[in-house]
Write a protein that binds this DNA or RNA. Structure first.
Lengths: 219, 219
DNA sequence: GTATTCAAATACGTAGTTGTATTTAAATTC
DNA sequence: GAATTTAAATACAACTACGTATTTGAATAC
């Protein structure tokens, strides 16, 4: 889902300076996402990015302080999108569909596509090494956690189920870890685990956690 | 847990050529592991590795074909260790300790330490990009899966529990994904999720999967 | 329409990386 | 102990990457 806006209103409008600048920014971000997914963050040069977007390094440095700088912006955009998707899910689809469907959607929405997920995997690894970066990323992750926590709380209330076995934010974190685990796994071993298997594993876990009789964790 | 053998039998034995060669090999592998964890696979130069091991690039190219070559060897060694650990667990500790303890051990043994796990995370990302590498890695992963499948089967028999809700290898794969999810999560967000929470989440899931009443996944 | 501003291109110097080719010194062989 | 072998060091040449400094040309302001 690229950033670049809908192009080409018929009369090929001559761009103002600001518009033009914004356009190259977006193009650079798109290009960066594509190239980084393909070659990895460290394996991608500034020139790669600029080149893939149809510019030279000059354009890059005129728009971003550094590769890391751009990368963070990339993650922020993606994060914003994810949050928006979740928000939507939280508001709209909380009617009485069955658990399975909810899950499927939920799972599918967590990251927008394969590329998005690879990007975050890259980010995680980078976070291990760069404390400052890690902090920034954790902020985003905790925002997501809170969103999911809301989802859990609402879901639990709506379904009038037994009380949650742990604080919603904790459960949210756990669910994130689990879902990420599945995605992460499928990322590098595609096809090894069928979608059906993935889904049923997740539904088992969800069921156990939110409906299970003796299943609740003590902490 | 470095590779280098116990050094220094008192009389400082003069090394034979072969021994010496093997020693530098091991030192290079150790150094590589350390540096790659710290700076990432792509961010690590051959010189970094050789230097950290106390050699020059000459020694490196005399022992390995390329960085990737060394990396694969690194993973193989680590994998062998992991398999050995699991094997041991499978044979030894299947007496009647309670589930919690089993789990704790199981979880703790899956990767030898933080560094080991980071290495595998790096490998996953690399696998996304390199089909050949991916194949090689999948072989290792499936070996591990089979080991865990044995564990599951034995565990289930020993405990005389209800029949497994899915073929053991499938369950094994799912469990790997889940455990990896937790580890992966804790890798980049250390401290965000307490060990207690991690443990209880896992035990919940295990319980649900292997003991749960209606909890088993259909597939 | 001329002057100014600024986005992006180009030029440049430095530093780092790679793989091979050659050398050197220690270990082995005879 | 001289000749040979070979692990590892050194030398080398081509390349890539970075960031800055400067230039260029189109868009704005006057």
């Amino acid at each position: 889902m690229p950033f670049v806006v809908v192009r080409c209103d018929m009369p090929r409008k001559r761009l103002t300076r600001e518009e033009s600048r914004e356009q190259t920014r977006l193009r650079l971000l798109d290009a960066a996402a594509a190239v980084i997914v393909k070659k990895g963050l460290a394996g991608t040069s500034v020139e790669d990015i600029a080149g893939h977007a149809g510019y030279t390094r000059g354009a890059f440095y005129s728009n971003f302080k550094s590769k890391t700088d751009l990368f963070i912006e990339l993650l922020k955009s993606d994060h914003a999108q994810i949050q928006q998707d979740l928000q939507q899910l939280l508001e709209a689809d909380l009617s009485n569909e069955d658990l399975q469907k909810q899950l499927a959607q939920f799972y599918g929405q967590c990251y927008r596509d394969h590329n998005s997920y690879v990007l975050w995997a890259e980010a995680r690894l980078h976070a291990v090494r760069d404390a400052r970066f890690r902090q920034r990323m954790n902020t985003l992750c905790l925002e997501k956690r809170d969103m999911i926590a809301s989802f859990i709380t609402q879901f639990n209330q709506r379904m009038a189920q037994p009380p949650l076995p742990a604080p919603a934010p904790d459960l949210a974190l756990a669910m994130m870890a689990l879902i990420d685990g599945m995605l992460y796994f499928n990322m590098s071993m595609p096809g090894e685990m069928s979608d059906a298997a993935t889904g049923s594993v997740l539904s088992t876990i969800f069921a156990a956690t939110f409906f299970g009789p003796q299943a609740g964790p003590p902490a």
